[in-house]
Structures are given as structure tokens and as C-alpha cells.
Design a protein around this nucleic acid. Sequence first.
DNA 1: CTGAAAGCGCTTACAG
DNA 2: CTGAAAGCGCTTACAG
Lengths: 364, 364
Amino acid sequence: MTKASISKKKAVTLKDVAERAGVSRWLAGHVLNGGKSTAHASLESVEQIRKAAKDLNYHSNYAAGLLRGKRSHTFGLLVSSAGDPLRSFLVQYLDAKAVQIGCHTLISNTFSNPAVPQNWFEDYVEEFVRRGVDGVFCAIHPHYEEDRAALLERHPNTVFYEDQGVPDAACVSVDREAAARLAVRHLVERGRRRIGLAMMTLSLPAHLDRFRGYELELQAHGLPVDEQLVFNGEPHGLAAYPYCDMKANKWEFPIELMDMVIDTLVCDAQADAIVAYDDFWAASLIKRMRVRGIKVPQQVAVVGYLNHYLCDWTDPAITTIDLSHEAAAGAMVQMLEQMVTDGPLPKDQRKVKIKPKLIVREST
Amino acid sequence: MTKASISKKKAVTLKDVAERAGVSRWLAGHVLNGGKSTAHASLESVEQIRKAAKDLNYHSNYAAGLLRGKRSHTFGLLVSSAGDPLRSFLVQYLDAKAVQIGCHTLISNTFSNPAVPQNWFEDYVEEFVRRGVDGVFCAIHPHYEEDRAALLERHPNTVFYEDQGVPDAACVSVDREAAARLAVRHLVERGRRRIGLAMMTLSLPAHLDRFRGYELELQAHGLPVDEQLVFNGEPHGLAAYPYCDMKANKWEFPIELMDMVIDTLVCDAQADAIVAYDDFWAASLIKRMRVRGIKVPQQVAVVGYLNHYLCDWTDPAITTIDLSHEAAAGAMVQMLEQMVTDGPLPKDQRKVKIKPKLIVREST
DNA sequence: CTGAAAGCGCTTACAG
DNA sequence: CTGAAAGCGCTTACAG
């Protein structure tokens, strides 16, 4: 059988199955594609139809179903770059969870692509409409100023990852306050008393959550909150955007800032531990401290944030907070599917916080 | 306007546009969706139609087009896990390049998902048929024994990443021989004379390519090929599968083997440089050598393979070979698109080798 | 260029 | 349960 003959071969249709099973097209369609009860059909007919479908390798025509208004079993996924360390595993798990309920994922990552025009976001939103996606996952970074309201207008069935400032929207996010508390508690248990916090900024809600967790956990252990122990990158020119420019696949990490963190927290404020902004900060802090003769973890313990697999490969390996991407993806898929089948979620079910986990390695 | 009214609002159709533009449905369809020449229409009509379409926010109905046999502008992407460090950037770039030619990417990564049944591969292949993808990118790891012949049978338009043992199939792969030569040449230029090679196995073609490159480049510099300087992990129980089990998101890295590499190459054979199997080997080798008091790069230089971003975060940062994922993705998209539009590629255009690049950091 | 018709494969509504 | 018909939105073929 040549390739040409394959591609020319007519697809097997409901009519073929019905004829072979000796039933009506209606019944065959009802049994194979109806989804609901098969009450109308005798058990024998159902058997016959299923067998005929299998024999003929029947698969219902996707385009015809769509045209008649059936759902697409496709979710659109908006992400700035699929390879982004903060997103790649979320992407993987979202698709894996979607597959479990019979759905597929259409990706759209375009920030990595300089050739894509400015209005990529709107174009994707329209293309998603055109393709009849059942819903959308929006996992673009919160600081990108795309029009999320317009997205919601076109796709009421949207679930966000991380709070993107859209009131009442369905949203799954990491419990950052809990994350900071986990880190601090662990350090206290290891006997640290002067625990520093190194943050990129303290002017955004998500970052403030971590600061609050840091404060609360210190207080829970009767430790003072010393503002000298809190480093805020913002006055030093650190904006809230990522230092990893995925567009150019280039890391522009402010390594000199890490020395400032060490000056401020370790040298001046005598920190014996640092809760770092993320694993990349942690890795650089460790690297710079080694150069300066400060031993990790003996003199200063370091905790990261994210649990990127690079944590296994630094020296020492980094103790960190795992963001539970799999759990987040599971929650997102479950919420979206419920929205698709049952309509909008009740308001009190729209915000889901994911519990992070402490992963202990060598840096503490 | 309530959400309900939006979802109920009838989609704008070609008929609406034609009426508004005062032309026939045929002409409107021809101008807006025909793609080919607009020779049949007067310039004025074309203007009118375009304007009407824009005013009404017309987008051609995807399902109807598919049903009538138009191409889907969708590529299927088979990958074991989208978050895999060896694949995540390829995934990102494939989508980015596809978008540039107006196509979208349907991902399918399921190895990460224990709940997916054994026959996931065949299911995806059928689902891709059902959804009418224009073609398929197959970037699953070569050692997974899925039925690639069956894939090709259903989807003649398939481009593989890395040689997967399918004769005559279109395939883009890294020039591994060139990669090894780049590493060796760089080390020779840095004055190294006893350059070790640490390989996972030497029984697979792809790995042998690197060994050949190593040999050739040594010979090109008049250096002897000393078999003591070649470490082969295979006799030590290292199979050719990845040590990163994405299914469980768990790394089972044979760290004790890294000590064996150091014993064999550095202690016994007096290597002053190691060309490592990949960046993860390089990172571990560096880590273990530090423990043993061997200075990198002063005593032993190390070169990785892949240019994963973790190379920036180890100490010292790793000199490595970049696999040019963006170029590979570009070639794959270009080949697939040509197959879609012009039919099968001539046999001599089916194998594309991507040139890797040397990235110098601190470990050499 | 127009206009009316057929048909892609399915689902829905309807009379039996 | 069956059977014949309509229609989702489009493209194609055809007579004008």
C-alpha cells in the first residue's frame, strides 16, 4: 500500500459503521459519540456497533463535531516561553493532566520569538476562539502588561497561574507566605538565629507575601525582625522583571548585586542564614561566598526557592522550596474542566493556593 | 454585554461579510480565505471585502475549513516530557518557528504521566490523524522503543529530531562529530595534551560519532589516541537511557561513577582535561574533583555538552558545546513545511546536520 | 464576476 | 429504535 493510496483512502464514517453493524446512523452515532447514556440501544446493538467501529478503525471526525458545536477537547496555553525555567515543568504537567481527562494542549509561546508582532497576545486569543478551545490557561509572567480583561471577555473559561491582578478570575498560585515560613522554620530548627531575607522587590503583593511569612515565622519562634537582615533589591535598580531574557535566551544576572547582598546581610548584619529570592540567587550567593572565603553552610546557610533541578548540581547542593508545579497543574486542569462542564465557579472556589514543600539538600 | 450573550452571539460568517461588501459569497471567500491570487476580483471589491471583514471581525471558521479539506496549520509534537532539559528549549523554539509561518503546535508529552496507558504513542498518532495535523515532529528520545514505522505510515509528513533509526526519514540532528572536535580543539589550544573522554556508552552510533570526532581532532593535532584516556560507562552498568527519570521527576544520577571517571582518567591516566558526556556529568565531575582537591581548570579542564543554562550557575561555570536548538527547530519547521506543500523531500535533503557551537566559560 | 446547488461528517429534531 | 431531512460554514463545480 503506497503512501498516496493511504492519503487518498476515504476516511471511515459513521455511515460505514452503521451499515456494517446493521443499525441506523443515528444509533451508531449515539452509541459511539453520544457520550451520555446508551439506554436507547439494546446491549446487542451496542456490541455490534462497537465491534464494527473497531474493525473499521472508526474515529469520529473532529472537524464535523466541532462544526456541529461539540467541544474541542483542546485547551489553549498562553506562556511567554515554554523553555523558561519557571514554566517548563508547569507546561509539561498541564499537558499531562489534560491528557488524563482526554484533552490536548495547544501551546503559544512567542516572547522567545522576535519575529512575532506586538499584538501576538490578541492574535492568539482570536486564534483560540477560531479553533474553539474549551478554555485557556494563562501562565504568562504577571509583569507583562497584556490585556487580561480582553482575554477573559473572549474566553470566560480561563484559569491563571499566579495572581495576575484580575479580580474574580480563577487563579492558582503558590502559597508564598507558607513558602517563606517553611524556609525560616527549617533554618531555626538548624540553630540559625540571624536569618536574612534577600528579595528582588518589596513593592509587589506576591513578594510581600513572602516577607510577611518571614516575619510571622520569626515571631512564632520569638525571634526579632531586624530590618538590617532584609535586603531589598529595588533601590539598587533591580526591577521586578526576570533577569533571564528568554527572548534572547540570555541571562543577564546581576551578579554584582549578589556581592551587595553578602555585604549587607552577612558582613554588616552578621546573618548566619539567607533565604534567597530564588534558586538562581542562591546559586550565585553560594558562588560569591566561596570566593570571599565564607563557608556554606557552616558559616551561612542558604535556602532557595523553586526547586529547579540545578539545585542538585551546585556545590553545595541547594536546600530549597519546591513550588509543587504538578499539584498546581492538577488544580488548574480540574478547575478549568469544571468551568467547561458546569459554568463559572462559585466565587469562593476561584482562588486556589498550592502548598509548597521544603527540600533539604546540602546548603543548610 | 453579558458573557451569556457573547457565547450565544452567532459567529460572523462569510455570508455576512459578502452582504456587507455587496459581493457574492464566492468572491468574499475567495478573497479572504483563498490564499492564492485575487486576480478574479476588482481592486475595489477586494478593498470592500477586506474592510467588511475587519468591521465585522470576521475570522474564517476553522472547523468548516478542516471539514472541506483545508490544512489545519497545526503540527503535532511528540516528546517524552516537555520539561526535559534536553527538550524544553527545542519545544519552545519549534513553536516559535511554527508561529512564524502561521502554524500552531499541539503538544503531547506523556511519559511524565504514570496514568497514561501503555499505548499512548499509538493513541496520539491516531488523535493527530483525527485532528488533521499537517505534520508531526518526533523528538522522543531514541532509546524509547515506540513504533516509528507506524507513525510514518499514518503521518508521512514527519520530521525527527536525532536519528531514530528510521531509514530515509527526514531527520535533523546535531553534528556530534563536530561537537567533539570543537571541544578537543579548544582544549588543545589551551595547552592540554592529555585529553580524556568520558562517555556513557560506546555501543550506539550517536555516541560513536563523538568518539570519532575526538579521535580525528587529536590526530589532526598530532596527538596520540590513548585508550586509557577513554572512559566508557557501559561496562560499569551505565545503560544508554537517561539518568533523569522524568516520569518520577527524579534524578538518579550515578554520582559514584563520577569518582570512577576521576580515578580512571585523572589519577591513573594523568588526564589534564575531560570532555564530559554532558553538562550534568561535567557539573558532577567538577563537584567531585573539588572534594578530592583537584583544581578545575588549573589541573584538569572540563568541557560539557548541551549548554544547559545550569552551566552558568556551577562553580566554576562550565565551558560547553551548545547544541543550537534554535537552528535545529528552524530546520525542522522548514523541512516539514516543505513536505506539506511540495510532498516528500528528495532523498538527499532528508538528513540535516546542525553545527554545534563552543561556549567558553570558566572550566577550561 | 454572480447565484444556486452539492457535499465534507456529523448532530438534532421529527414523524413514524 | 428507524429514516429522511436540515443545517453547522465553508469550498468547489457549474451554468450563466
